[in-house]
């Protein structure tokens, strides 16, 4: 479940020292190295402008890195021929912050787009699409055009479109930004459900409420760098382990350093900010060159 550097032999997505810049501008993403293991669930947070959307673009194959290696489903994207892109993209579902629905198509047509594009017949998917729309509470709006829907409804259309093709990885950019907390919960349950079925999930969000609800690693982007905080359960486990080791060490002062990441003063801070991943962001923002100050479990990725 961890989004730690290269722990999974066959991750869905692997970043290796990836940097990205637009044109000749400054690098907006620097030295990103992480895996999205198959079936994992993670949040991506960070202040606006930190490059979340760019990072997501790299994952959903809408942009190429300016350096480093990205492999997606085991394919190196740098050498990926254009005609193999569609096949990979069909395995990726994306919910855009601004939805990107086609305003001239009905809700039903918007949601069935990935299936239609994959060459499926309307009769094959009509029932499934209707069922999915009913599930997200849009059963009575199937023939409506997106501009006539509320923001929250459009968001649900976007989510339905992203998941209708049963992608192996689902990327959602602020998927709960426009819905009430109840619908937010419902959508989160949908994501969790998909995750249980084996879908890898990445949710970019500012909603800390949402982040707290799932015991999942949190990737935090700040100043182009990525920090990955392991899930709460793992940190608790590790803290308990360290506690035990400390007690052991007290008993036997000659004991060697335990396996795993070095415990440091930062760990304590980490445990303290358990409830608030934005602290890490705030910390990073206060210290532009934070590379050396942040180690321990908040690995520089």
């Amino acid at each position: 479940m961890t989004a730690s550097p290269h722990s999974d032999p066959e991750p869905v997505v692997r970043f290796d020292n990836v940097g990205m810049r637009y044109g000749r501008g400054p690098e907006i993403l620097r030295d990103l190295s992480f895996d999205l293991p198959r079936g994992s669930f993670q949040f991506l947070t960070g202040p606006s402008g930190a490059g979340k959307t760019s990072l997501l673009k790299l994952i959903y194959l809408a942009a190429k890195p300016s350096r480093g290696l990205i492999s997606c489903f085991g394919r190196d994207v740098a050498t990926l021929p254009r005609d193999e892109l569609p096949d990979l993209r069909r395995r990726i579902g994306v919910v855009f912050q601004e939805f990107r629905l086609l305003n001239h198509l009905s809700v039903f047509d918007n949601v069935s787009l990935p299936l239609r594009v994959a060459g499926k017949k309307r009769s094959e998917y009509a029932e499934d699409v209707a069922e999915l729309l009913a599930w997200v509470g849009l059963g009575d709006k199937m023939s409506a055009l997106p501009p006539t829907l509320s923001g929250g409804e459009q968001q649900r259309v976007a989510i339905a479109r992203a998941v209708v093709g049963q992608p192996e990885i689902l990327i959602a950019d602020e998927p709960t930004g426009n819905v009430d907390p109840e619908m937010g919960m419902r959508l989160l349950r949908l994501f969790a459900e998909l995750n249980k079925l084996g879908t890898t999930i990445v949710i970019a969000t500012h909603d800390l409420q949402l982040v707290r609800m799932v015991d999942a690693p949190v990737m935090t982007l700040a100043n182009g760098h990525l920090h990955i905080r392991p899930p709460r359960s793992q940190r608790q486990r590790e803290a308990e382990l360290r506690e035990a080791e400390r007690r052991d060490a007290d008993d036997r002062p000659t004991a060697t350093v335990p396996m795993g990441p070095e415990p440091s003063a930062q760990d304590a801070a980490d445990d303290l900010d358990d409830e608030d991943p934005m602290d890490a962001v705030a910390r990073a923002m206060e210290m532009p060159d934070e590379d050396d100050t942040d180690d321990g479990e908040d690995r520089d990725a």
């Binding site: 009905s106 039903f108 009913a134 509470g137």
Partner: peptide, 19 residues
């Protein structure tokens, strides 16, 4: 909500390229 599933809209699919 799950009991009576709404039917998919009748008629063909919309044109992908708007006129």
């Amino acid at each position: 909500m799950h009991d009576d599933l709404p039917r998919p809209p009748s008629g063909g699919s919309g044109r992908l390229l708007p006129p």
